[in-house]
Amino acid sequence: MWEIPFYGIVIPIITIVFSLISTMKYRKYFIAPVVIFIGLNIMTIVLPLIHNVGWEALFGWAVFYAVISLIISLIVWLAKRKTSTPRTT
Score class of each variant (00 low, 15 high):
86 P>V: 09
25 K>A: 13
58 L>H: 12
75 I>P: 04
39 G>R: 05
1 M>V: 06
16 I>L: 14
61 W>M: 14
68 I>C: 12
28 K>G: 09
68 I>W: 02
53 V>G: 10
15 T>G: 02
11 I>Q: 01
58 L>Q: 13
68 I>T: 09
55 W>H: 10
54 G>M: 09
5 P>V: 12
89 T>S: 10
71 I>C: 05
19 S>W: 05
60 G>T: 07
18 F>G: 09
28 K>I: 03
19 S>Y: 02
46 V>I: 15
18 F>E: 07
88 T>H: 12
76 V>D: 06
83 T>L: 04
59 F>V: 12
63 V>A: 14
55 W>G: 08
60 G>Q: 05
63 V>S: 13
10 V>Q: 01
34 V>E: 07
17 V>S: 09
3 E>D: 08
67 V>S: 06
49 L>M: 15
5 P>S: 11
24 M>P: 02
5 P>D: 07
30 F>T: 10
39 G>V: 01
73 S>H: 10
23 T>R: 06
15 T>P: 03
53 V>H: 08
82 K>G: 08
18 F>W: 11
61 W>G: 08
48 P>A: 07
33 P>R: 10
21 I>C: 03
81 R>G: 15
20 L>C: 13
69 S>C: 08
31 I>L: 12
59 F>K: 08
53 V>E: 13
37 F>Y: 14
80 K>V: 03
48 P>D: 10
22 S>I: 03
43 M>W: 05
2 W>K: 09
48 P>M: 07
41 N>F: 08
32 A>T: 06
15 T>Y: 04
8 G>K: 02
77 W>F: 08
66 A>H: 04
2 W>D: 02
68 I>Q: 01
62 A>H: 01
62 A>N: 00
31 I>E: 09
13 I>W: 00
82 K>A: 13
44 T>Y: 03
32 A>P: 06
87 R>L: 12
10 V>G: 00
36 I>W: 05
35 V>W: 14
44 T>C: 12
60 G>K: 11
28 K>Y: 02
14 I>C: 05
48 P>N: 10
49 L>R: 15
30 F>P: 01
57 A>E: 05
47 L>Y: 15
85 T>I: 13
19 S>C: 12
36 I>R: 06
63 V>G: 07
36 I>V: 11
7 Y>Q: 01
9 I>Q: 03
11 I>S: 01
78 L>S: 08
5 P>M: 14
68 I>G: 04
74 L>P: 04
87 R>N: 15
28 K>W: 04
69 S>W: 06
36 I>M: 10
46 V>C: 05
48 P>C: 13
34 V>H: 13
1 M>K: 13
16 I>C: 06
29 Y>K: 12
88 T>C: 06
57 A>L: 14
75 I>E: 07
71 I>H: 00
56 E>K: 14
24 M>I: 13
73 S>E: 05
66 A>K: 04
23 T>G: 10
58 L>S: 04
69 S>F: 01
68 I>D: 09
80 K>Q: 14
78 L>K: 04
76 V>Q: 11
68 I>R: 01
79 A>M: 07
38 I>K: 05
30 F>C: 05
35 V>M: 15
5 P>T: 15
14 I>G: 00
13 I>E: 01
38 I>D: 01
27 R>D: 15
86 P>N: 08
21 I>E: 06
19 S>L: 10
79 A>H: 10
30 F>R: 03
26 Y>L: 15
13 I>D: 02
88 T>A: 08
